[in-house]
Computed example of a mutant assay.
Amino acid sequence: MNIPLKLGRGSSASSGGPVPLLALGTFAVGTDAFVVAGFLPELADDLDVSTSTAGLSVTVFAIGYALLSPVLAAVTATVPRRRLLVTALLVLGIANLGSALAPGFVALLASRVLAAAGAAAYTPNAGVAASSLVPAERRGRALALVVSGLTVATAVGVPLGGLASRVMGWRPALGLVAGLCLLVAAGLMVLLPRLPGGPRVPLGTRLAVLRVPSVRLILPVTVLGMAAAYTAYAYAVPVFAALDVTGGAVQQMLFLYGVGAIVGAQSSGRLTDRFGGTAVLLTGYTAMAGTLLALGALVLTGASPVILVALLTWVWGASTWCQTPPQQHRLMAAAPEDASLVVALNSSGIYVGIGLGTLIGGLGGGASWMFLSGAALAILTAVFLTTIRPVSRR
Rank of each mutant, 00 (worst) to 15 (best):
V215E: 00
V237Y: 00
A62W: 10
S15K: 13
G175N: 01
L56Y: 10
S368P: 10
T313G: 06
W316T: 07
L182R: 07
S268G: 08
V71S: 00
T76D: 11
V259A: 09
M253Y: 08
R200N: 00
R211H: 08
A37Y: 02
S14P: 05
A121F: 06
A129W: 08
A234M: 09
R393F: 07
A126K: 02
W321T: 11
A228K: 07
V184I: 13
A249Y: 13
M253W: 11
L298P: 06
W316C: 04
V209E: 03
T26A: 02
V29Y: 06
A142M: 09
T283A: 12
L210D: 06
A44H: 14
P202F: 05
A333P: 02
A115C: 07
F61T: 11
V177K: 04
V237G: 00
D338E: 10
S52G: 01
A344E: 10
A144R: 04
L308R: 02
T31A: 02
R83E: 03
V86S: 03
T286W: 01
A100P: 02
S165N: 13
A227V: 10
R394S: 14
R394K: 12
Y235R: 11
P41T: 15
L160E: 03
G197N: 14
L312T: 11
C181V: 03
